[in-house]
Design a protein around this nucleic acid. Structure first.
Lengths: 331, 331
DNA sequence: GCGCGTATTGCAACCGGTTGCAAATACCTC
DNA sequence: GAGGTATTTGCAACCGGTTGCAATACGCGC
């Protein structure tokens, strides 16, 4: 059926070890046998079986890619970048969709069964138990979009959410808005908590300014729309900082359905800069996450852990950037 | 380090075979030893290594999930459904991002290295060489969103694109539009070709109606906008059937930027019914692909091939459905 | 041609499981 | 309790590789 080491060895007239060695970096083989083996391998179309070799070496080149976020369009970009980044380094992503899973032990088991070399947790809303459970099971873990802390339990890569909150507040204040509001994602998400903190810090520290806040059920269009309509019933603020872009678009829809014009009546700023944000029918002013950098750093970090598994967990933060479009009035 | 078969066997006081048998469906083990083994396994936290077992059984429970479409938002839904569908059946998706790959041999090698049990090709724009190459390499293949034919080279699941073209044409004619146009995706995509064929068939067969057509570079917002503006320069049709929803939104943007109102001046119908289509700021009339059914059938089909690898390839077609929203005038 | 140090090679055991086969045990019937 | 069949069990070989170790080959100086 499939071509194996033995077949190649036979054809080349050498031992199986010789064949194995020609295909492992840095092993001791003479140029002569290497050539013989290569020729035989070529002829038979041989390629080493990664799983079998993983069995002895303990390296499968499989990386678990875990997320619970299969609805936010930004994650398509995230998956694109992750899969490419891993492929470029000779690694393969093994996806785990956490959407209806709450037990970390279950996921640990699944990853262990395939003896993945490392794990990338990509989500700000997945419980930290998961990342911790993977770490405790001895797997290198990087939590992308996790909460950046002084001494995080695992490596974390993302943006500084507190600073994002500050930036958003400043952007609104700079444009003359005074009655501000934060319309966040789920209150339990660390990203939401941090953004709120930064937002309130700046808004609260500015005389003449005020800031209220509320939370949507999820990071989704519907939740944003529903929450905005609920909030409007109690009186509109002058400008809103929304938890993310999808939420913003929902909020936008809620505002429009109440007959309010953006940005004439109400200002709006999102976060992420997903592809749709720049579509003319949306044209959302937002804070851009440097996704390529974040994901590249995440992959790089998980790769580095393969070499040195015990380096202390650290946080890598990237700055967000204001992308000016049509949902805030000019400064 | 990791708990193995041997450890459990030792603790339970039985042979390794006994342990292996308790964990394989339908093997001969007495209730007594099964219990002993289970208890020992529980105590040690043992779980069989899928890779090692795959080595002997030839079944890794790994399914290659291949796509080149990481930009169309509909694919986030696709990935969600695929990953869940596979997980529910105890299978794991191994993703291959084909975005910058043109050589099927490369992908075949990657999948063979991990001895995947089967392959799901999810895209209408990936060259058919790929699906064929996987089949020729002896892997069960299902091409989701592929071209449905009488005797396809591999299993195909999707919608009847020709019929979709007809449906779109009929929907436009029913609403009194007469000067119709098809604004398709890339001319090389089989989906585009088929939709166009059905569209022209109906439009051409209706007296008093006319139909023109053109193609966008890709299935994307920008391409849709650019192509619509180009087409408009030569004079607007009364209504457009766009290759898919993203393209439609681009076209919508192109129309709006030319000062045309939808649906008062120009009608628009898309295809896919991606999540954004129903967002109020978009509110796109479109043809819905029954994604859950399509993907469930695809997974089911690849699973069935694990049992009977040599059943002749067949096409499974699902009907699309008109979703009435705000971009066509009422009938 | 000899002796020595280094490079290359093959043997055999191992990674963590599975499975055919024959031996051992359990169960039944008389 | 004997005899026969049906189940259960362990042994050992195997899946497709890797790797430590000892044996062999090679290169070089004399």
């Amino acid at each position: 059926m499939n071509v194996t080491l033995k077949d190649v060895a036979q054809l080349a007239g050498v031992s199986r070890s010789a064949v194995s060695r020609t295909f492992t970096e840095g092993a001791s083989v003479s140029e002569k046998t290497r050539l013989k083996v290569m020729r035989a391998a070529e002829q038979l179309g041989y390629h080493p079986n990664a799983l079998a070799s993983g069995l002895t070496t303990g390296r499968t080149k499989l990386i678990g890619l875990i997320s619970n976020n299969f609805h936010n369009p930004i994650f398509l970009e995230v998956f694109d970048l992750f899969t490419r980044g891993l492929q470029a380094r000779g690694l393969r992503p093994l996806i785990i969709n956490l959407s209806d899973e709450t037990d970390p032990a279950q996921s640990v088991r699944q990853l262990r069964q395939y003896s993945v070399d490392g794990v990338l947790v990509a989500s700000s809303t997945v419980a930290t138990d998961f990342a911790r459970a993977f770490r405790d099971a001895g797997m290198p873990v990087v939590h992308t979009f996790g909460r950046c802390a002084e001494a995080p339990p695992v490596h974390v890569v993302g943006i500084d959410n507190v600073e994002c909150g500050r930036m958003a507040a400043r952007a609104l204040l700079d444009r003359g808005y005074r009655r501000l509001a934060f319309l966040g994602g789920p209150e339990s998400a660390t990203s939401t908590q941090d953004r709120l903190r930064g937002f309130l810090e700046v808004a609260g520290g500015t005389s003449g300014a005020s800031a209220s806040h509320s939370f949507a059920e999820t990071y989704s269009f519907d939740a944003g729309r529903v929450e905005m309509r609920r909030v409007l019933a109690e009186g509109a603020a002058e400008a809103y900082f929304c938890g993310d872009d999808v939420l913003s678009i929902g909020a936008m829809s809620g505002l429009q359905s109440a007959g309010l014009r953006i940005p004439e009546d109400v200002g709006l700023i999102g976060l992420n800069d997903m592809e749709m944000a720049r579509w003319n029918n949306i044209d959302l002013t937002t804070l851009r996450q440097p996704l390529p950098e974040i994901i590249d750093a995440s992959v790089e970090l998980v790769v580095s852990m393969l070499e040195s598994p015990d380096s202390p967990p650290r946080s890598i933060l990237f700055p967000a950037e204001l992308v000016e479009r049509g949902t805030l009035r000019r400064a």
